[in-house]
């Protein structure tokens, strides 16, 4: 689908009253109107125009994204009793499991510089943000299916709105994170200023993995069903509730797991531990940013195909 420009650019003569007979005719010449051309040829064959359209739609979709986010936010908490508690209940419960196991001596995790309970809670809170970012693109598309099938709007907006929601939930979790740190007296060092960078890496990484799942996940429901299972297992393979390992299978996996350095670095900026994996974190963040950009272009190209096949 190629769109030269979106019609929003035009200033239209406004009608003040609907019930009046329309006497205002379009003042613009026909040549001033933007043209949209739909043809079977792949849009990627005109990359200049594609990027221009994408930039334009991202701009045009900003307001829509914000509206959709506000809509979801209001609706989400209006029909619940516990409200914002739901933002941090899942990671809290997950960490309590491990805190219980550790306190009973069933597991014996050592090498944490802060009390284990604080360590585990911080880990799961950060991990939850990553998982949500990863689920966000596909979730947004699935929820917006009826709208996508019937209305033409800047479709980037639903991705952005989904990420707003992830960001909002993270901010709520941040409050709990602060409470945890205050309770166990975890004092961050100067490296805490790098915390936003590490979080950006986590969010970007989750987003780009989520975006890569869209082409298949939009068609086949299997992907959406598989995400929670994979995410749960993945959490155990990542140093979330235990410190990073350097040898054995866990060490090997940590080397190839892009989330491992991100989680470790993010937590270390809060606990004041040395940031041994900082260069790796930056590299992964940059990579994720590149993949996310490519993913956004791909998203634009494939949406007409997804809409055609997935139905309303």
């Amino acid at each position: 689908m190629t769109a030269a420009t979106t019609p929003d650019q035009i200033e239209k003569p406004r009608r003040s009253d609907m019930s009046d007979t329309v006497t205002v005719h379009n003042q613009l010449g026909i040549d001033d109107l933007p043209v949209r051309v739909y043809s079977p040829s792949p849009a990627i064959e005109h990359p200049g125009r594609l990027l221009q359209d994408m930039g334009h739609d991202l701009m045009a979709g900003r307001e829509l994204a914000w509206r959709l986010f506000m809509r979801d936010l209001k609706a989400q908490y209006r029909q619940t009793y516990l409200g914002y508690l739901w933002a941090f209940l899942p990671p809290l419960v997950a960490s309590l499991t491990f805190i219980f196991l550790q306190s009973q001596g069933i597991t014996n995790i050592r090498g944490t510089t802060v009390p284990y309970a604080a360590f585990a809670m911080m880990g799961t809170l950060l991990w939850q943000t990553f998982v949500e970012a990863m689920q966000s693109p596909l979730n947004s598309i699935t929820t917006a299916k009826p709208m996508l099938a019937k209305v033409n709007f800047p479709r980037e907006a639903i991705l952005v709105s989904g990420m707003y929601m992830v960001g909002f939930n993270f901010l709520i979790r941040l409050v709990l994170l602060a409470a945890v740190m205050a309770y166990w007296q975890v004092v961050p060092g100067a490296t805490v200023i790098l915390f936003p960078l590490a979080m950006l890496g986590l969010l970007l990484c989750g987003f780009c993995i989520g975006l890569l799942m869209v082409p298949i996940g939009g068609l086949y429901g299997d992907v959406l069903k598989a995400i929670p299972i994979v995410a749960q297992f993945w959490m155990l393979l990542t140093p979330v509730v235990y410190p990073p390992q350097s040898d054995g299978l866990a060490g090997f996996l940590a080397m190839w797991n892009p989330i491992s350095p991100l989680i470790t670095t993010a937590r270390a900026t809060l606990t004041g531990d040395p940031l041994t994996q900082l260069p790796l974190t930056i590299a992964i963040t940059l990579c994720a940013a590149c993949i996310a950009t490519a993913g956004l272009i791909a998203y634009r190209l494939i949406m007409p195909h997804l809409i055609e096949r997935m139905g309303g």
């Binding site: 933007p34 949209r36 043809s39 709208m147 996508l148 019937k150 209305v151 055609e308």
Partner: peptide, 28 residues
């Protein structure tokens, strides 16, 4: 409306397109 791509031929649409295919899109 540009929701799906044609498999042949070409469509050109000029100006702002309003579509009443679904009323109340995005209603919560």
């Amino acid at each position: 409306n540009g929701l799906i791509k044609p498999d042949g031929g070409q469509i050109s649409m000029r100006g702002r397109v309003g579509a009443l295919i679904a009323l109340g899109a995005g209603f919560n």
